[in-house]
Design a protein around this nucleic acid. Structure first.
Lengths: 124, 124
DNA sequence: AGGTTGCATCAACGAACGTCAATACAGGCC
DNA sequence: GGCCTGTATTGACGTTCGTTGATGCAACCT
């Protein structure tokens, strides 16, 4: 169930120097843009927020997410798929229900990428 | 020249509790989504990066930005307009040339919004 | 087995987006 | 004034996106 996801926000090595550290290369920009594009929709932002509110290791059942919107069930499923493909969340089926959670560290790495204050110690 | 811009990322009061603090309301989500959507394009991300690399108070002339892309001049101008409408950058005409800069604090507020570590002191 | 519920996928539609050539506007220079 | 350069705006095009109803698949329950 957890297949093709982006591996963008650098996992360990800190991905990229930061938005304001140096001009982004084409490839980095293309990858990062996919993540921001995934967050660039009100529905997906709310979905992310609802899932992330459960905290580290927390999960949310789709059956809790869908009724929170005035949208059809396929639409919510589609948005969740996009968030998953962007490498922001993952899911697992347990019995009848499917649970989603925020991939650990992604949000903080994104935050670090946007922040203009240097991570300290990278002054070479 | 600097007209209609979004006033989203909260300026002073800290905009919103943070993505993972509490489920986002519809209005907040709609406003924030516009900002992320603006960043959700490779060209705009590179533009932001090129401008932000100049640091606090730094500026970049459009004449330096346009030739960095394999795109027509109107296209770059259009992307710059979107970034401006998202409240991320602003510009000023000086003589023949137009200079762009990153609005102060926006990136750091965005970063704080994404970060999962509480800003401290907001534990009510 | 059949029926039911939860979620994902498919196919199709209109709306929004990214791009360009053409044009308009602003300022400097002659 | 007229010309040239730098930037923004307009109008049009093809592509992508958000949404839906219909359908498919997986797991539970008799």
């Amino acid at each position: 169930m957890s297949k093709q996801e982006l591996e963008v926000v650098g996992q360990d090595a800190g991905c990229c120097p930061g938005l304001s550290a140096a001009p982004l290369g084409e490839d980095q920009a293309a990858d990062l843009a996919k993540v921001f594009k995934a967050l660039g929709d009100p529905v997906r932002l709310r979905l992310m927020s609802m899932i992330a509110s459960r905290g580290q290791g927390g999960e949310v059942c789709v059956c809790e997410l869908t009724p929170a919107f005035d949208l059809s069930q396929p639409t919510i499923s589609h948005h969740l798929k996009l968030l998953r493909q962007a490498g922001l969340i993952d899911c697992e089926r347990r019995g009848t229900w499917v649970y989603y959670w925020v991939l650990p560290g992604v949000l903080d790495r994104l935050a670090a990428f946007l922040s203009t204050t240097q991570p300290a110690g990278v002054t070479a």
